[in-house]
């Protein structure tokens, strides 16, 4: 049987599967090439589900997540990645900071 893309209770988050990215640099790269509207759309879809997602992921072994659960987890990491722009800066360009991709994650 083919893997479902996401755990059954979260199948409605399928439009955000292109944010199921790793490692960190891939999430940062998607952040810097997305519009503010795209970032806000991800935030608005995932943020209200976070308590439910955390409860679900706590029931799955963190060192051996099935692929659908792992994709869901990566989407939450993307939510964290974009949250500063959506909640705090409230704009796409952070004028007085270096290019986020200049911070080169080594692991």
């Amino acid at each position: 049987m083919a893997d479902a893309a996401l755990p059954e209770a979260f199948e409605d988050l399928a439009p955000w599967l292109d944010w199921a990215l790793e490692p960190e640099r891939a999430r940062t790269a998607k952040k810097v090439t997305s519009s503010m509207e795209e970032l806000r759309a991800l935030y608005d879809a995932v943020m209200p589900r976070m308590e439910e997602i955390i409860a679900y992921l706590d029931g799955v072994p963190s060192d051996d997540r099935p692929a659908p659960a792992h994709r869901l987890y990566l989407i939450t990491l993307s939510l964290v990645e974009v949250s500063n722009l959506v909640e705090i800066y409230k704009r796409r360009e952070v004028i007085e900071a270096c290019d986020p991709l200049h911070f080169d994650p080594q692991h």
Partner: peptide, 19 residues
């Protein structure tokens, strides 16, 4: 996720510093 949050907010603040 708390750790990821701290990592990202500190990283983003340090990007302001690097600038």
């Amino acid at each position: 996720l708390q750790q990821e949050y701290f990592k990202c907010i500190i990283r983003d603040a340090l990007q302001e510093d690097a600038f």
